[in-house]
Each structure stands twice: as structure tokens, then as C-alpha cells.
């Protein structure tokens, strides 16, 4: 569970102060598939980076499973990201010189609690899930955008993180590939009870979210459950 109180992030550009986030209060439950939506510049990426421990808030508090993450040292934050968080970026951000398998294994290889066999096993099972086992020895540039994004999701999932963050993962994809990626998220969310926090500004994506938080000028303007979705889940 994530609890946010009074979250502010201000960028100072000389004399000008940009309030990217302006006092946010939000609680995100375990297993939620949360959509963060809003216009460009509304603070979506800023919020995601703060939740993902990639940035420091100017003020306010973030508790993840009761832990105040501002108390962590730099190294502890790195380890927290490695063990508990997963990230999917808009531009896939795969290591261009590593094969698909190497990219996916990379975060697992760094974990002290994983043997080499486990790393291999986990990597293969996640590759199977995204349906790219036969491409394991290919380099990212030899894959389509949709395939690369699926590899990037596999990399984010290989350590079975508590929370998966995705910043506009479909922005570079056509609608068919976007659907493939979103279906994959839904599957992960449903099968593994995976918490997913995803930024999007495509309106049609909201059919995938349980709950939608809308930002405007760094403030939450609406926060609501996706009724249709919940109804669907309730009966399914």
C-alpha cells in the first residue's frame, strides 16, 4: 500500500518556480491497476518518479507499506528499487548491446537472493509469458516497438516487484501493439495481483484501469473507480 500526504515538487528555474506537484494526498491499494491521466505538463511523470524513488519531493511524505521512503539512504533506495519496484518507460529503454534474454535477466542477476539457475528460470518463464522466447538471442534493435516494450515489461517483472510503474508505455506504439501491451498489464495484474501505476493520456486506455487519478497543474482534479471495470471484476 502506498500512502501519500501533502506531496509537493517544485522546480526552480532561476527566478521562476514551477509547481509540478502542488500538495497531493493519495492512497493506492495493493493489487490496484491505477491510471494517472491528465494533460501534458500536469505533473504525471513527476508523480511517478517520486513514487518510484527516482526523485525527491520538495515536501510531503510517501509511505510504501508503512515505510517512510525519505529515510532511506541513496544505496538503500537503489536496493529498494531493485527488489521492490519495476519500471517501464515510454521509449522502452532497453540496453542496446544486450540480447533480449540478457536485458530481462539483468535486474535478477544483481539480486543477492537469486542463484544463477533461478535467474535463468525466472527469465525464461517471463519471456514465455510475453511470447518472445524464440527471440531471446536477438538485440533490441532487431525487434519491433511493441516487442521491445514487451521485453521491457519482462525486465520490469523478472524480480516480481511489489509495484510496477509505467510512464506512457504505449505512447510510441500503434493501437494494435498498445492493446497487446495493455492486455499484458491486465494479465499480470489479474494473475499475480500485481500493483500497477500507469501514466497515460490516451482516453481509451481507461477501460483497463481500476481507478483513474486525473491531474491538472499539479493537483488531483478527480479520483474515481472505473465503475464498468469494477462491475466486470466483481462478477468475473
Amino acid at each position: 500500500m502506498i500512502e501519500i500526504t501533502g506531496l509537493r515538487r517544485t522546480y526552480r528555474m532561476g527566478a521562476v518556480e514551477v509547481k509540478a506537484l502542488d500538495g497531493l494526498d493519495l492512497t493506492i491499494e495493493k493489487g490496484e491497476f491505477l491510471g494517472i491521466m491528465g494533460a501534458s505538463g500536469s505533473g504525471k511523470t513527476t508523480l511517478l518518479h517520486l513514487l518510484g524513488l527516482l526523485d525527491q519531493p520538495t515536501s510531503g511524505r510517501i509511505l510504501i507499506d508503512g515505510l517512510d521512503v525519505s529515510t532511506l539512504t541513496d544505496y538503500e533506495k537503489t536496493m529498494f528499487r531493485l527488489y521492490k519496484l519495476g519500471y517501464v518507460f515510454q521509449d522502452y529503454a532497453l540496453v542496446p548491446d544486450l540480447t533480449v534474454l540478457e536485458n530481462v535477466s539483468l535486474p535478477a542477476m544483481l539480486r543477492k537472493d537469486r542463484t544463477e539457475e533461478q535467474v535463468t528460470k525466472d527469465s525464461f518463464s517471463i519471456l514465455q509469458k510475453i511470447g518472445l522466447c524464440d527471440r531471446k538471442d536477438h538485440l533490441p534493435r532487431e525487434l519491433s516497438g511493441g516487442q521491445q516494450q514487451r521485453v521491457s515489461i519482462a525486465r520490469a517483472m523478472v524480480n516480481k516487484p511489489d509495484i510496477l510503474f509505467a510512464d506512457e508505455p504505449c505512447a510510441n506504439l500503434d493501437s494494435e501493439n498498445s492493446r497487446m501491451v495493455l492486455d499484458l498489464f491486465r494479465e499480470i495484474n489479474e494473475e499475480m495481483k500485481q500493483t500497477i501505476i500507469m501514466v497515460s493520456h490516451e482516453d481509451w486506455h481507461k477501460e483497463y484501469f481500476h481507478r483513474i487519478v486525473r491531474l491538472k497543474d499539479g493537483k488531483i482534479v478527480s479520483d474515481g473507480l472505473n465503475e464498468k471495470k469494477h462491475a466486470g471484476q466483481g462478477t468475473g
Binding site: 527516482l54 527488489y83 525486465r155
Partner: peptide, 14 residues
């Protein structure tokens, strides 16, 4: 640089 930022983001230590 961006690549390095990404690696750090996914939990690769400096």
C-alpha cells in the same frame, strides 16, 4: 547518459 539513468532507475548501483 540516459542509458545510465535508466540502469540506475531499475536498481543498478552506481
Amino acid at each position: 547518459r540516459r542509458q545510465i539513468g535508466i540502469l540506475k532507475a531499475i536498481g543498478v548501483d552506481k
